[in-house]
Design a protein around this nucleic acid. Structure first.
Length: 941
DNA sequence: GCAAGGTC
């Protein structure tokens, strides 16, 4: 028991492993351990002397953040408020249920301590967690003296130095995180609620969701991640193959064959390539102009960070980043590898690297390599490179305990452990060495080169089996030597689109753009799969789903870059400024939220873009969410029926004004307003009669000609029941707008509860008629009279021709399959055309027929067929809105050659697609074997 | 039912 005067200090680390490690170092493994209330977070006790003062140390931990940011209860339910209110709704930080045990331990121990020493990780999040711990501890003991221990690695000297030089917590760092949390929460929740409520019931989604609760989430990290996938997918779709040309030369000698490649690379201009080729063929003697011999090194990788671990495990073993992290976490928990969430890719000079390598000498497979590494005579050891990243909290991932495999390990545990060990051994090894020979030759003024490589020492490649470095042979050449090429060919190739993004590519994109952290990137990727936004194929390559693509397309069509990484990057810059103290938290919060709220409101105004984009892929249902009604003002009052949500002023698409519950469709409370209103806006004035309050007054403007002369056009009214004027006008005018001439009342039908005009604004039951149930519902009149899809009369939306093709449209976009039923024959070859969907800025989603044969350049927009558009459009416009005669559909090379000014002879005369030697000497231009194109009499015609 | 960030 500590003496009366001895100070008791409560030490708190970010995770149990750090509490254990630091206690071990400070107590020289003499600490006593006891249980706390949380089974993971033990308490270590020992005595220690800080600057000559004996201290009794209690050392425990949290598990990451202790608190969560959330909206006040009033705003927690999805229908409780207009999502735009989430930009101002009050938020609070609370300790969630599963962290209450840790909170109780901290408070209990804090009561007996005078000092609080914070050992959280030395990054912004760590600083923020420090303040969470301070808040909880000072709640129990107001008089604690609070200190911050700053350490950069869990090694003796750092830890002792940290505790002897205690500092104070840095509020700016913590505030940067507070701002980040608040922005993420407000943006994420508002857009997620908006998107989900707008779209989830409005379309038939073609993917199976056992879980009825489809959530179309938006997040400042998940959307840019999706954006990378969609962008690459679009790049591939937009790719037009382009033919190019290259000249290759080979030479067989007694020693073997050398293959020389053209130093110009390739040319897209066939005529130009052929002219050069003809010059070479005319004077084919090759002269060696350079022979260079060089020693080349291939360096081992930098020490292993989390992102590199994820990327490499994906590349080498095709493990998902999420699974890799799960396995790595288990290896870490059981002590085989170091902490797996680290940005650091350089070892501290004080790490005993040799001891780590030494442990691996017993391994049956890579043990001999480790032994060689330890042997000074082998000269294999090398201090590892520095990748330039240091999170100041954790070392690079490395093995911490030898294992030749444990009985409980899965294949993947073996793989990840092997990767960590081999990577570490590679890092501390010499680079591989090769001798490379480069030979350059000149044929008729054109330069060609060939390269050979002999591996002199594999070094790290011996242990890092994942890296390869191929050798290649080249015969000996002397400077000035001349020879006749064995083959000299003009070969064609075609440009290819880039591949879909692999998981490693995606991680690189995120890393570069600062999306997520080492500990969360894999979560964002997994979330895209969970939300049906993207899929991953067997080669770990990602494609967007129709849902993911249409969401991005919708925002893109609005002109918003919500799906690009810039928003996150800007936020990250702001966070940095706050942590450095150059900007204030309140300022960046205000500006960012203001900007995002404006963006949100604008996106909501432009929601038709989202509908249009979704409509390309999915069939509409006839259900509408409350979001489809225009919210034109703020909250009028709390709903008296469900008592859970607000009533807001709305204007329906048919022009009717109403005050409806945000809980719709669960709560159908509605107050219909007079049909003679031209404008209405909620004011900040409240009614002092109606209760329960507050009931905000609405400023109305009525159409003069639709109200009796004794009523004023302007009226500040209350919907709470006290307003006689409003009630009278409702009775006089009814609640629907007047129909324009020519539109029958049955088409613009009013709800049964309102046509009589008997419903007073004070009606409390105020049930809105369901829009889908029975023939009594006038909404069905609308369906019968006018197609809700194409707005034409004469058929319902179910029988709408354009509607019928929607599902075909959706599929054809993804698969470009032929729409069998209604195909159009090619006007050139007569074969049925393929129905495809355009993906250009001007015509995205528009369908067109094109001939499957690349020879026929037949093309027609699907929506112009009935207008006789086949003949008109086919000849001059293709799906990308460009001129078809430029040959874009047929490939640029083909078009150039077909329509080129110089004419052409036999394409194959000088071309050897199979790589065979050139067949003969013949003019490219006229085909005459007596001369070459550059001397052709027809030249220039 | 929503975000992203910690970590078990």
């Amino acid at each position: 028991m500590a003496g009366n005067r001895q100070i008791r200090a409560l030490n708190v680390a970010e995770k149990p492993s750090v509490a254990k490690a630091v206690s071990g170092i400070l107590s020289r493994n003499q600490a006593r351990v006891r249980e706390g209330r949380s089974r993971y977070n033990k308490i270590f006790e020992f005595d220690y002397t800080i600057r000559g003062q004996p201290i009794h140390m209690l050392f425990t931990s949290v598990t990451g953040h202790l608190m969560e940011l959330e909206f006040d209860d009033r705003y927690r339910k999805w229908h409780s408020c207009d999502p735009s209110e989430l930009y101002q709704a009050p938020v609070r930080k609370t300790v969630p249920q599963d962290k209450l045990d840790i909170k109780r331990t901290l408070q209990q121990e804090a009561r007996s301590c005078q000092w609080l020493i914070l050992w959280l990780d030395c990054d912004r999040e760590g600083e923020n967690i420090a303040y969470e711990v301070i808040e909880v501890c000072t709640e129990a003991n107001r008089n604690m003296n609070t200190w911050r221990a700053r350490f950069s690695a869990l090694i003796d000297r750092d830890i002792h130095e940290a505790v002897q030089n205690l500092d104070r917590p840095n509020q700016s760092f913590s505030e940067a995180v507070d701002a980040r949390q608040e922005i993420d929460l407000r943006i994420g929740a508002s857009f997620t609620r908006f998107q989900t409520m707008l779209l989830k019931d409005a379309f038939h989604f073609d993917f199976a969701t056992e879980d009825r609760n489809l959530i179309l989430s938006y997040g400042p990290c998940q959307f840019p991640t999706l954006g990378f996938i969609v962008e690459r997918y679009w790049e591939i779709q937009a790719h037009e193959p382009e033919e190019f040309w290259t000249i290759n030369c080979s030479h067989n000698s007694e020693e073997g064959t050398a293959n020389f490649s053209w130093m110009r690379g390739h040319m897209f201009d066939y005529t130009c390539a052929v002219t050069i080729y003809e010059m070479c063929v005319e004077e084919p003697t090759a002269t060696v102009t350079m022979v260079r011999q060089q020693e080349k090194l291939k360096y081992p990788p930098y020490p292993l960070s989390t992102i590199e671990l994820e990327k490499r495990a994906s590349r080498y073993f095709r493990l998902s980043s999420e699974h890799t992290m799960k396995v790595a976490e288990e290896l870490y928990q059981s002590g085989f590898i170091s902490y797996p969430r680290t940005e650091t890719d350089s070892f501290s000079a004080r790490t005993d690297l040799r001891a780590i390598a030494q442990e691996q000498q017993a391994h049956p497979v890579w043990g001999p390599y480790a032994q060689r590494l330890m042997d000074p005579e082998a000269d294999l050891w090398r201090n590892p490179g520095n990748g330039g990243h240091d999170d100041k909290a954790h070392p690079p991932i490395h093995p911490t305990k030898f294992s030749a495999g444990e009985s409980g390990w899965s294949q993947d545990h073996h793989k990840v452990y092997e990767l960590v060990v081999r990577h570490f051994l590679a890092c501390v090894s010499q680079p591989a060495v090769s001798a490379e020979t480069t030979v350059e030759i000149d044929i008729a003024g054109e330069l060609f080169s060939a390269c050979g490589r002999v591996i002199l020492a594999k070094n790290y490649l011996d242990v890092y089996r994942f890296d390869t470095w191929g050798g290649s042979f080249i015969p000996t050449y002397m400077l000035g030597q001349q020879f006749a090429p064995t083959t000299l060919t003009l070969d064609s190739g075609v440009t290819r689109p880039p591949p879909l993004l692999s998981e490693a590519d995606l991680l690189s994109c995120m890393d570069k753009a600062g999306i997520g952290t080492d500990a969360t990137m894999h979560d964002h990727i997994k979330k895209l799969l969970d939300r049906f936004y993207a899929t991953k194929d067997a080669n770990t390559r990602f494609s967007p789903t129709n849902l993911g693509e249409s969401l991005v397309m919708g925002y893109d069509d609005m002109g918003y870059e919500l799906w690009k990484p810039y928003l996150r990057s800007k936020m990250e810059d702001d966070m940095k400024a706050v942590s450095l103290g150059t900007k204030r938290k309140a300022d960046i919060l205000a500006s960012c939220l203001q900007e995002m709220k404006a963006c949100f409101l604008d996106a909501r105004l432009n929601k038709v873009k989202l509908f249009e984009a979704m409509g390309i892929f999915f069939d509409r249902t006839n259900r509408t969410g409350a979001e489809e009604q225009q919210t034109i003002g703020g909250v009028v009052r709390r709903c008296g029926l469900c008592q859970q949500a607000d009533m807001v002023l709305r204007r329906r698409q048919d022009g009717k004004f109403m005050v409806g519950c945000l809980g719709y469709p669960q709560c159908r409370k509605v107050v219909w307003l007079p049909g003679s209103i031209s404008e209405a806006a909620v004011t900040s004035n409240t009614c002092n009669v109606c209760s329960p309050g507050p009931v905000f007054l609405i400023q109305f403007k009525f159409r003069r000609l639709e109200i009796p002369p004794n009523y004023s056009v302007d009226h500040l009214g209350c919907i709470g029941g006290c307003d006689d004027t409003l009630r009278q006008l409702t009775e006089i005018c009814g609640t629907g707008p007047r129909n324009p001439p020519g539109t029958s009342a049955s088409v613009r039908g009013q709800a049964p509860t309102t046509t009589s005009g008997r419903q007073a604004p004070t009606t409390t039951s105020g049930r809105q008629a369901p829009t889908t149930t029975s023939g009594r519902n006038p909404a069905s009149n609308v369906q019968r009279g006018v197609c809700s899809h194409c707005r034409q009369t004469g058929h319902s939306s179910n029988g709408c021709p354009s509607q019928v093709s929607t599902s075909g449209r959706a599929r054809s976009r993804a698969t470009n399959h032929t729409n069998g039923g209604s195909s159009v024959p090619c006007n050139s070859c007569g074969e049925p055309c393929e129905l495809r969907t355009a993906n250009t800025a001007n015509n995205r989603g528009r369908q067109f027929y094109s001939c499957q044969s690349q020879e026929c350049r037949f093309f027609v927009w699907e929506d112009t067929i009935n207008d006789g558009g086949v003949g008109q459009n086919a000849s001059h416009t293709n799906a990308r809105g460009s001129n078809a005669t430029s040959g874009r559909r047929g490939g640029r090379g083909r078009g150039r050659r077909g329509g080129g000014g110089g004419g052409r002879g036999n394409d194959t005369t000088f071309v050897s697609a199979t790589g065979e030697p050139v067949s003969g000497r013949r003019c490219f231009s006229c085909g005459d074997p007596s001369h070459f194109a550059n001397a052709c009499p027809n030249r220039g015609m």
